[in-house]
């Protein structure tokens, strides 16, 4: 169990030792995102762009055209909101080989509150042609995704939670873009989730097991591209599909699943997530409880739905 931000920093350091083209551009948050580990290891390839996210994105595009593999370090919210136009026009529309390390994604940003919480990023980035959008659940998947993104040629957005989640994968794990992963089979209800919320869904499913409810959990680390057939197949095995995400219920994973199923295999899809309101400053446990995303709260909600 390792915080995803440490995974980000450590994996960049490891990549830096084998790939001299890997560079990191920071918008003055390296000691939060843990890109500072790379700064210590390879000071000449660490470029401090200051508190100026739009410029940072543009510079990365220039570097990418010379064969560098730029990783960007800032909070998710400052990429998907402050720097979205350069990301749209310069990165996505030119298919630039820029990697967005979107740190502190979701609600749990270390007590900073709604100004720093990003629960719209998946909706925004999903709607961006040519952008690959990935959201790892645990440390092992996080590392695999960061390595994959570095090798892949093209824009990648990696949604990284700040803190640690319990390990669900082992060293055998291999990331395949588009692939969904069944973390648990279940016949009554299928929870479809992404990022560390998948781990909380697995914990909820275990709680539900004790109450005689058989809940499956399907993890979607690759929001875009995504293997639609796998989602349809998994959904067709159960009576009820519930999407769960640490994100707005609009346009993110819930939107994705509802779109796929309504076209291919219409059925009821319940979306759990943040319901059209802003977050607030509070400890993680408080937020998970208040937004009904903790394993216990999820268990209660599923139980009510199934009853």
């Amino acid at each position: 169990m390792k915080a995803l931000r440490d995974v980000f920093g450590d994996t960049l350091v490891s990549l830096g030792s084998t790939n001299p083209d890997v560079v990191v551009l920071d918008a003055d948050l390296a000691n939060s995102t843990k890109a500072d580990k790379f700064a210590m290891a390879y000071p000449a390839r660490f470029l401090q762009m200051g508190i100026a996210e739009q410029n940072c994105v543009g510079v990365a595009v220039g570097l990418a055209s010379l064969g560098f593999v730029p990783w960007l370090s800032s909070f998710t919210v400052f990429f998907t909101h402050r720097a979205i136009d350069p990301i749209r026009m310069l990165v996505a529309q030119t298919q630039a080989n820029v990697k967005i390390g979107a740190a502190y994604a979701g609600l749990m940003t270390g007590l900073t509150g709604k100004t720093h919480q990003d629960v719209q990023d998946l909706a925004i980035m999903r709607a961006m042609p040519d952008m690959t959008v990935l959201a790892p659940a645990d440390a092992i998947e996080g590392e695999a995704i960061i390595r994959w993104a570095t090798e892949y040629e093209g824009p990648v957005f990696v949604r990284l939670a700040r803190d640690a989640s319990a390990d669900v994968f082992d060293q055998e794990y291999r990331f395949v873009p588009g692939r969904t992963i069944s973390l648990k089979e279940g016949g009554d209800v299928l929870l479809i989730s992404t990022g560390p919320q998948s781990v909380r869904c697995l914990q909820a499913a275990e709680l539900l097991q004790g109450q005689g409810i058989s809940a499956g959990v399907l993890h979607v680390p690759s929001i875009k591209p995504v293997n639609k057939e796998e989602i349809v197949k998994a959904a067709e095995k159960v009576k009820l599909v519930v999407t769960v995400e640490e994100h707005s219920i609009y346009g993110g994973l819930g939107g994705l699943v509802a779109e796929i199923l309504s076209e291919a295999s219409p059925r009821r899809v319940i979306r759990f997530g943040i319901e059209d309101r802003w977050g607030e400053s509070a400890p993680n446990d408080y937020l998970l409880d208040a937004f009904r995303m903790s394993p216990a709260r999820l268990g209660e909600r599923i139980q009510k739905l199934v009853a």
Binding site: V77, T112, G113, T115, H116, S281, A282, P283, Y286
Partner: peptide, 24 residues
């Protein structure tokens, strides 16, 4: 803390006396 008027960054919708929200 949860439910506070004193958010991590000034929130004009919570605390009277603030003139706007800042943080970004």
């Amino acid at each position: 803390k949860g439910g506070s008027r004193l958010q991590g960054h000034p929130d004009v919708t919570k605390l009277p006396g603030l003139e706007t929200s800042t943080g970004s």
